[in-house]
Nucleic acid binder design. Structure first.
Lengths: 340, 340
DNA sequence: CTGAAAGCGCTTACAG
DNA sequence: CTGAAAGCGCTTACAG
């Protein structure tokens, strides 16, 4: 590394241009891989960049040009493995487009989310992938439109006018109910927890519709505490109704895992005395004993879809809103049997 | 909102200044909350900002000033809940300092990691929190120093000259061995998997040292496949040695969960026929049945420490390298008993 | 407390 | 293919 590289605090494009005996505009064209530059010139400039340790300054480029090559991602929670998988899918697609993720955690609080949206705008993100906090006002997306800030909704939606990537939760609940009914269950409970949002409603509606369609009572919807550590002790809640359930569908696998422990504590053997069906099909489902049957919602794929929707949107700002709703799939393992 | 806000593609500080009848410099001082501006003037300018829908342009500010208010975070994996918790701790601290996280996933590949470090520099991050990919050359941190890019190592370290936030893995292994020995176990295996890095070595060394100190043979170190789905079927590997173990310490809880399933498949009851001890103490440890005894490494806290180290470093660039190594704590639940 | 000027490191037309 | 000039939206001295 030549001494110049150390003297100046930063090597600029002008330094490169001078050292390579070209103009700054030409050097700029080399960086952006323009075909206007001859192969020999290009090679020379690139060599100089390496020699000088030149680093492209995105911030400066962004100021003049229109794009920042950054995508804001706002999720309501970071410790839930489900969101980690979503994030993983988003990151992979954003990365593959040469862009980078600006990450923020709303904690499911609309106020914080507003603040974060502003911060994202201050940082000049090209767009935002948002899993809207529970109770987000749909007006947020109207504002984003006025701000000319492209937004993609992921997992949850608050407006049909904005792109959305999610899973067919209703279809998933239908698969769950149909499967249990086919085993002979008539009294099926649905255990729910967590914040209320579109994905919540879709699961509840899906449950009700599917139960109704089979002439089964859809009134055993049991609300369980949110805190993971409190879930096991909530298992007895399932049996408080007059009509005792023989099977329970869980809102997600975190709940299934906890209730499985709680049922165990009550002396009930899942997959023998009682049937338990999960939702999301996270890694743990396969590792549990008995293995948990679960409806797969493939969060990594939803994340990838959200990433692709945003890239599409950036390429095509005025096309109509798109939705990518992936099919769910019931993964049958060992946790459900015919009622005794 | 007045019509001007819609006509121009962007409201600038100059627009605000004109509308408030002050100079651009004064408006800039208002934004940065300088005490040089009178209360009345400040209020007027702030009102105009709201009326015009002004959004601060960090990119422009960064170009002139020195800081970007962004922190790069590079982790080797995003789907592992352990890293998600680390990330959660980092994000909380970075956010509380009004800064934002640029997230990237190295996939534990040094080449990708090099590319990501460059990308972070291009985006002008103020510093990077790095969980170094396995087999990262320590030279990377020497380079970062030459680049004048502050780096904090998290969870794993490759150089003592650079800040580091981690946990006392050796101490944790000692606690694990001492506990099992106190129950009467003499033949203790250590199940390992995953990439080899500093945290890996510290755990293995900790195991060996603690076993040696008690006069126990430390030669039952069993390598298990990385893929989560393959772990259960690897349980028989534990019993291939001449001397059969009566207890196994697991490299982490993911491994413990999988081996627990595998032991179950072999007809062995954990906490009755066999003792199983986890490491990391993730949420699942409490939810498993039997509840998993595990050594807690508190990844969220490590993340917070890493965040604080970076903030310290930004405030004090030339202070000596710091290490924050949190104590581990053995969380005793139900998965270990005295040998039969 | 306020104003006019320079400059951060790029990209973008516009000539040649 | 290349060069000179203007400008993106801020902050930073420097005068007043």
């Amino acid at each position: 590394m030549p001494p110049e590289a150390k003297k100046k605090s930063r090597v600029t494009l002008l330094d490169v241009a001078r050292s390579a005996n070209v103009s700054r505009a030409t050097a700029s064209l080399v960086i952006r891989k323009s075909a206007l530059v001859g192969a020999e010139t290009r090679a020379r400039v690139e060599q100089v960049m390496r020699d000088l340790g030149y680093v492209y300054n995105m911030g400066a480029a962004r100021l003049r040009a229109e794009r920042s090559h950054t995508v804001g991602v706002i999720v309501p929670n970071l410790t839930n493995p489900f969101f980690a998988e979503l994030l993983s899918g988003i990151e992979a697609i954003v990365d593959s487009a040469g862009m980078v993720v600006l990450l923020a955690n709303s904690g499911d609080q609309p106020d914080r989310q507003d603040m974060l949206m502003r911060r994202m705008r201050e940082h000049g993100v090209d767009g935002v992938i948002l899993c809207p906090a529970a109770d987000t006002e749909p007006d947020l997306l109207v504002q984003a439109f006025e701000w000319q800030l492209p937004v993609v909704q992921a997992l949850r939606h608050i407006s049909a006018q904005t792109d959305y990537a999610g899973a067919d939760y209703e279809g998933g609940m239908r698969q769950a109910v149909d499967y249990l009914a086919s085993l002979g269950h008539r009294a099926i409970a649905f255990a729910v927890h967590g914040p209320v949002h579109s994905a919540y409603h879709e699961r509840v509606d899906g449950f009700r519709t599917a139960m109704d369609a089979r002439g089964l009572a859809a009134n055993m919807i049991v609300r369980v505490p949110d805190a993971t550590s409190l879930i096991p002790s909530a298992a007895p809640l399932l049996f408080e109704a007059q009509h005792k359930p023989t099977a329970v569908i869980c809102f997600n696998d975190v709940l299934a895992l906890g209730l499985s422990a709680g049922l165990h504590d009550m002396g009930l053997k899942v997959g023998q005395d009682f049937s338990l069906l999960g939702f999301d099909d996270v890694t743990d489902a396969e590792t549990m004993r008995p293995r948990l049957s679960s409806v797969s919602t493939a969060p990594v794929i939803i994340g990838e879809n959200a990433g692709r929707l945003l890239l599409d949107r950036l390429a095509n700002p005025s096309s109509p809103a798109q939705r990518i709703v992936t099919e769910t799939r019931l993964h049958i393992r060992q946790s459900c049997i015919s009622p005794l």
